[in-house]
């Protein structure tokens, strides 16, 4: 029941965000759907005991993969789908508590929250990077060796 309410609210919130970012109409509902999947993966990951960073990487990878597949299919830029997709993972709560701790003068606590925020953001980036790498196989991106010669 709780999960159902969360899913509905995620869907609504992501569509709201889609309108803020002015995502084209035909991608709005898709973005909301990806957001719900992301949220469910995150909850599943936490439920089976993965740390929040690992769960975030998994969720972000799922979101970016679905976004890449769908974007190819309906021919729109990937960002219009991947940005709504990763929004449920944004560490807004931790960032807020970082700020709150610093305001209240509890610097050690603030640093702790700050590091957690950075790790969470890094995890989102890692998921995006992994998905992008998978979808760039063969096409090439950021090469280090001239293996073609």
């Amino acid at each position: 029941m709780n999960l159902l309410i969360e899913s509905v609210l995620t869907f609504a919130a992501i569509i709201g965000f889609g309108i803020i970012f002015s995502v084209p109409r035909r991608a709005l509902l898709l973005g909301g759907g990806i957001g719900v999947v992301t949220w469910l993966v995150l909850q599943t990951g936490t439920a089976i005991g993965a740390s929040s960073v690992i769960a975030t990487v998994m969720a972000s990878l799922t979101a970016a993969t679905i976004a890449h597949l769908l974007a190819k299919k309906i021919r729109i830029p990937v960002t219009t789908l991947s940005i709504p997709g990763i929004l449920p993972l944004v560490p807004g709560s931790r960032a807020y508590f970082t700020m709150l701790s610093f305001v209240e003068g509890e610097y050690i606590q603030g640093l702790e929250y700050g590091v957690e925020t950075m790790l969470q953001a890094g995890a989102i980036a890692a998921g995006l990077v992994l998905a992008l790498s998978i979808f760039s196989f063969g096409k090439g991106i950021g090469n280090r060796y001239e293996t073609g010669h």
């Binding site: 969360e6 609504a12 919130a13 309108i19 803020i20 084209p24 949220w39 807004g92």
Partner: peptide, 25 residues
């Protein structure tokens, strides 16, 4: 102009804010 009217954007911001306040506990 922007794809969506400005009042809809404000409304959407409200929905997003409400939704996320619930998701964050």
């Amino acid at each position: 102009p922007v794809n969506y009217p400005i009042w809809l954007i404000h409304l959407a911001a409200g929905v997003a804010g409400g939704g996320f306040s619930y998701l964050f506990g």
